[in-house]
């Protein structure tokens, strides 16, 4: 292990080390703490300039209630779920299929298709913005959640295919030979061998995709305008414009946007890290 572990017998050294790490962590998360604390403050304190002193009264419940009742945040939140969940499921299905084919079938152009999926994934979003927007307008999907779902499924399929392909390619070759020798068709192999074995990868991918899609802002502002369609990210940006100095409310709104991915992360931390680092430590 590097750095050299502090010996378990050096109790005071270990405690001191933890204290130092906590100190650095507080600085590291300082900006976030500031926002969390502000979201607890009452409007009077914020307007009166008491932003760091002891609050004269707590506004925790009021602030969050206000965010959900006086702003369309609840609607945004629901929209985000309506966009994110089907998108994640769609990407999981498509990328499992394409990853299976790309990892297990040698055909001319296999590498090219793979390179296109990977390369496309690195393209700047702006290069496809105008045609995608135009496409959605022509399909009559502009300013609908469906427009965002279609785009996210298409775009994330690139990354997810890379992910699933590498995972399936790492499964032992002999398992697939055994399945073939026993007369399983490719489809049977997919259903009975591949899918049960890639469950951990699907979990890791699902949490990553959830975070990516939930956090998307660019496409939200490109493809939607109505409050009834907008996800939380675009919604938060709107609130910022409307509630210029009501930092307690903006802070509460920020926390509402941030909470779902953070919860997902803490629930499935192992999968999240595994997904993010896949490929990074390989080879």
């Amino acid at each position: 292990m590097y750095p050299r572990p502090i010996p378990e017998t050096a109790i005071w050294q270990r405690r001191l080390y933890v204290a130092v790490v906590i100190g650095i962590l507080i600085v590291w998360l300082g900006p976030l703490f500031a926002v969390v604390l502000t979201s607890f403050r009452s409007m009077q304190d914020v307007m009166g300039g008491n932003l760091w002193g002891w609050p004269t009264q707590f506004g925790l419940i009021e602030n969050y209630t206000a965010v959900f009742t006086q702003t369309p945040m609840a609607q945004y939140f629901l929209n985000s779920l309506i966009i994110t969940i089907p998108s994640v499921i769609g990407v999981l299905i498509l990328s499992t299929l394409s990853g299976f084919v790309l990892s297990r079938y040698r055909f001319p152009g296999n590498m090219l298709v793979f390179a296109l999926f990977v390369g496309g994934n690195f393209l700047p979003h702006q290069i496809m913005m105008i045609p995608v927007r135009d496409l959605m307008v022509r399909l009559g999907l502009y300013d609908t959640t469906m427009a965002l779902i279609i785009f996210h499924v298409a775009f994330q399929t690139g990354f997810a295919t890379l992910f699933m392909r590498n995972f399936i390619a790492a499964l032992p070759d002999e398992l697939f030979q055994a399945a073939r020798a026993e007369g399983a068709t490719p489809f049977q192999t997919l259903v009975h061998v591949v899918i049960p074995l890639v469950r951990p990868a699907l979990a890791a991918l699902a949490i990553l995709l959830f975070t990516f899609i939930w956090n998307d802002y660019f496409w939200a502002v490109v493809l939607t305008i109505s409050d009834s369609v907008k996800p939380v990210t675009a919604g938060l940006a709107n609130l910022r414009g409307e509630w210029v100095s009501a930092w307690n409310l903006i802070s509460a709104g920020t926390i509402v946007v941030a909470v779902p991915p953070v919860i997902m992360f803490f629930l499935m931390q192992k999968h999240f890290i595994a997904g993010l680092t896949m490929g990074a430590v390989k080879g």
């Binding site: 032992p172 020798a181 061998v193 074995l197």
Partner: peptide, 10 residues
């Protein structure tokens, strides 16, 4: 029927 070196059990 084939028996593999790594056994290839699912």
């Amino acid at each position: 029927a084939m028996v593999f070196q790594s056994y290839a059990l699912y």
